[in-house]
Amino acid sequence: MAKPLARYAALTGFVELGRTLSLDPVTLLTSVGLDPAGLDLQDRWVPAASVARLLELSAATSGRQDFALKLAERRRLSTLGPLSVGIRDEPDARSALRMLIRFQHTYNEALHIRLAERDGLATIRIRFDPGEPVPVRQSVELAVAVTHQLLRHLLGERWHPVSVSFEHGRPADDSTHRQFFGAPLHFDGEYSGILVYTGDLDEPNRLSDPLLRSYAQQVLDTLTTPEEPTLTNRVRELVELLLPSGRCSIEQVARSLGVDRRTVHRHLAKSGETFTSVLDSTRAELAKRMVTGRRYSLTEISEMLAFSTPSSFSRWFHQQFGMSPREWRKQTSG
């Protein structure tokens, strides 16, 4: 399987920030296999893992755990490329955010954003998967910060989220984080992302020009890939929810959706999936995420993913990713 790619635009402002922190940006870029000249070609694609390594190395070399947030401060909406044109002219924050999610692969294939709304609150979950075991703390913080900035662009400087969460631990100095987000911070959390009021997402996009929307649509028509069918997304969400409970079956998923199992099979087939393929890919995704994190022991993870023994989990993990979960965890520790 091909490794995820990211646009060079993800590093907008990197050289300038590096120099203000007395770093040598060119040396750092070349040390992770990136071409410094490529920074002038924002739409050029490079391995997402190399971008992740660069951000971690820059944070470590500068001694600044807030490196990603400082980089985010130099980003503009235009960094999203052609997608920025469509987002700018969506009528409200919700539709703009949904567009960001729908076309996220057009600017960073390693980035996965999910929106869930319930009881007046909207959870924006953000995950960064570079396809190999590298630390991603800075990449995640950059993605969360840029999403926060996008909402601030759309809703105005006075807007603030309900809270901001990160799966990784609290930095020694979180003053930049508190100032940047202006909201309660949770570290070592269940997910990385932003919690907002659903009412905020209904607010009109203050940047929108209805007369330009048709032109924006023409730009979006050049970006490929339709959104996955909603039911397929719901199946993935339910598998992720039910797997740790030991009750993850197609019958249980169908009951939760209020349909029969044949309907589930039919909708998955339209996306080229089966229930088994969704279960396998979701289990692999969860395993990688949990092993990368530090919240659970490897024994706990094996139980949560419904393996009979830790050794069977370890063998399965090695078949999936080419190394043991212990080796993966060691390589992703940053």
Results as ranks from 00 to 15, higher is better:
S78M: 10
S308N: 13
L201N: 12
T232D: 06
Q179C: 12
L151K: 03
Q138P: 03
R114A: 09
L39C: 04
Q217C: 10
P325T: 00
S302P: 03
S50Y: 08
Y8M: 09
P133F: 01
S175P: 06
F14C: 02
N205R: 06
P210F: 02
L83W: 04
S277A: 05
E203H: 09
E273A: 13
G131M: 02
V144L: 02
M99A: 07
R234N: 09
L54I: 03
T27Y: 06
T299I: 12
E240Y: 15
F14K: 00
H153T: 11
E73Q: 10
Q138N: 02
R234H: 12
L241R: 13
V253S: 14
D89V: 03
A72E: 13
G193Y: 01
S311M: 13
L185F: 03
A172Q: 07
L257E: 01
G120W: 00
V259H: 14
L77V: 05
Q42L: 13
T230C: 10
H112Y: 13
F128G: 05
A10S: 09
D209W: 03
G246N: 05
E56G: 05
R75I: 10
L11N: 00
V291R: 02
S314R: 15
R125C: 12
I124C: 04
S314L: 09
S95M: 13
S271F: 12
R326Y: 15
T20H: 06
V15C: 06
D92R: 14
T276M: 09
R7N: 10
I250L: 12
L279T: 01
Q331G: 05
R247I: 08
P229H: 08
R158D: 14
H186P: 03
Y191T: 11
P36S: 04
H177A: 09
R74P: 10
L17K: 00
I301V: 10
Q252N: 11
R206P: 11
S192G: 04
L17W: 12
S302F: 06
A6Q: 03
L305G: 03
Y107T: 02
V144C: 01
Q149W: 15
Q104P: 11
E16M: 13
V162M: 10
L195E: 07
A287Y: 08
S281G: 10
Q65N: 15
P226H: 13
R294A: 14
Q104I: 06
